[in-house]
Amino acid sequence: MTVVDESGTSKALRREDALLRVDQVQKYFPITGGGVLKRKVGDVRAVESISFDIIPGETLGIVGESGCGKSTAGRTVMKLLDPTGGKIEFEGRDITHLSRKEMVPLRREMQMIFQDPYSSLNPRHTVGSIISAPFKVQGVKPARGVQAEVQDLMARVGLNPEHYNRYPNEFSGGQRQRIGIARAIALRPKLIVCDEPVSALDVSIQAQVVNLLEDLQDEFRLAYIFIAHDLSVVRHISDRIAVMYLGRIMEIADAEKIYTSPRHPYTHALTAAVPLPDPRTERKRERILLEGDLPSPINPPSGCVFRTRCPKAQDLCAEEIPLLRELAPDHFGACHFPEEKHLIPVATV
């Protein structure tokens, strides 16, 4: 089985003032056979082992392609899914095994924004009742009354407070995402997990929402876990970035280093694959093409999960799982043969 004693990782990824600390968290989904007994025949290893921490006011981006486990990771650390292994600490308290009920008070501190602003809002509830739901659930009575508080929130996220009694279908995609954001910040949480919050939106609207998220972060010193497949958006908003592949973190470092000096061959290929909105730079850029598709998370490759597509793979990669280790100060990579520094020259525009 997988041996993941990431001693180096655990030490170095442990910052004293961490708001959330995720230590070798694992999430398997059982696959059951047919018949009445529903015997377990295997597991989908959505998240194999991930470790990171996040401090107040920080944005950690989690990037990766479909099926890499980034959304499952987000839901698991939020405890919307129960982890099958590892440990999650929030403000120093172990929350790994808390029940749904025990989690309720903690929901004031940690909230979530979802991708699809069409299915994450109840179409039969007015905007006012959607945004005020957190007050009801938590039994909070704002001094000036719920409606005044909600209307303030609406104004804060750029919605017209007079639309308090309207229904979600009367709003556009971007406005709905603002409703979801107002609901998430209603109780002044410390951490918000944003799962692809802007990927359903048009470019011009996407920029409005990204700016709003940045403003709110500055105003309330929010920490974000920003999960997205769009590397440009993640690079824009994140302080640090974790790159995931098949349930594991391949590399985690400062956002700029992930782009300018990726140490993991996967990060390198991923960043090189993103076309830049700059034709002159684009014509000069090197391209690294990865062959093939993502392997199955039911039966992942032995050793390094990326080795089947890695241009640098050697025998060792099939035998031993590379541990996430500190390759440079605050720069962690899980690779036996990490890339040299500064592969990509910083773009000179």
Partner: peptide, 11 residues
């Protein structure tokens, strides 16, 4: 053009 975040431009 002003709306598009660029991967080669940081925070």
């Amino acid at each position: 053009l002003g709306s598009v975040p660029r991967m080669d431009v940081g925070r």
